[in-house]
């Protein structure tokens, strides 16, 4: 199948309708396997059972960042190649990426309470994710505020690219800010070495979450295409009435 076929929204809808049931099934199966492994995973010698939160926290963090990556690629597609589906893909990635970033923050905070004794510490990684969430909120607000979809899409594309360029700088400065203040005794999440017995479930859960992301993304894209179809039909409706009178 040539890639150009994906450019046609109608064609895309057919493919999405056919692919979604399979994707859902695979996602559920991989989640079942992943959760089985998670239940049988050993406790960490330092953190005990709370390490089980890691199997949610780390994949969510990864997908939060993947979402922004996806939006940046879509932004290039919108601005450079003017691909008709690119801004649909970018718009669909924003709420999902934000949701996973949010999951990452909440699970991190619930992991932090037993580990640090408070729900929130201005730890470098968590703080960077918080800034990412704020950037996501900005993009969502932009889509929300723009009354005309195509103008909103271009504005959001520019913002995603600016964000993508800025994210490493933000990460760097937050790290610097944090080491400036942070006493070294504070425990750092996700140490450098990971027991293989913990690594397998983590990788499976990461795969499951990625599949979940793909499923949701495809479904949201389908909704967005339908929403645009409704919009164009409404415009036609207003125009037809004007012609009739």
């Amino acid at each position: 199948m040539p890639i150009i076929d994906f450019a046609n929204p109608t064609r895309f809808l057919t493919i999405a309708n056919r692919a979604l049931p399979w994707l859902i099934a695979v996602t559920v199966i991989v989640f079942a396997i992943g959760l089985f492994y998670v239940m049988n995973a050993p406790d960490d010698y330092q953190q005990g059972a709370t390490v089980k939160i890691m199997f949610l926290h780390v994949p969510a963090a990864w997908l939060g960042m993947l979402g922004w990556g996806l939006m940046s690629v879509a932004a290039l597609g919108t601005l450079v190649w003017r691909h008709p589906l690119a801004d649909v893909a970018g718009k669909a990635a924003a709420p999902i990426g934000a949701a996973f970033t949010f999951i990452c923050l909440v699970t991190g905070s619930l992991w932090g309470r037993p580990t640090w004794g408070t729900y929130w510490v201005w730890d470098a990684r968590l703080t960077s994710m918080l800034v990412l969430l704020l950037l996501y909120f900005g993009v969502l607000a932009l889509y929300w505020t723009a009354e005309e979809p195509s103008r909103g899409a271009r504005a959001a594309a520019i913002l995603s690219l600016v964000g993508a360029v800025n994210l490493p700088i933000i990460k760097f400065s937050v790290d610097w800010w944090n080491t400036l203040h942070q006493p070294a005794s504070v425990f750092r999440m996700g140490g450098s070495t990971i027991d293989p017995a913990l690594l397998t479930p983590l990788l499976i859960m990461a795969l499951a979450f990625t599949l979940l992301f793909a499923t949701l993304h495809l479904a949201v894209m389908r909704n967005e295409i339908l929403r645009r179809r409704v919009r164009s039909m409404r415009l036609m409706q207003a125009q037809e009435l004007a012609e009739a009178t």
Partner: peptide, 16 residues
């Protein structure tokens, strides 16, 4: 509101 409150620790430092 969320953003303003988030910016404060960057200025003040993360001392809980």
């Amino acid at each position: 509101f969320l953003i303003v409150v988030t910016m404060m620790p960057f200025a003040i430092g993360p001392d809980l």
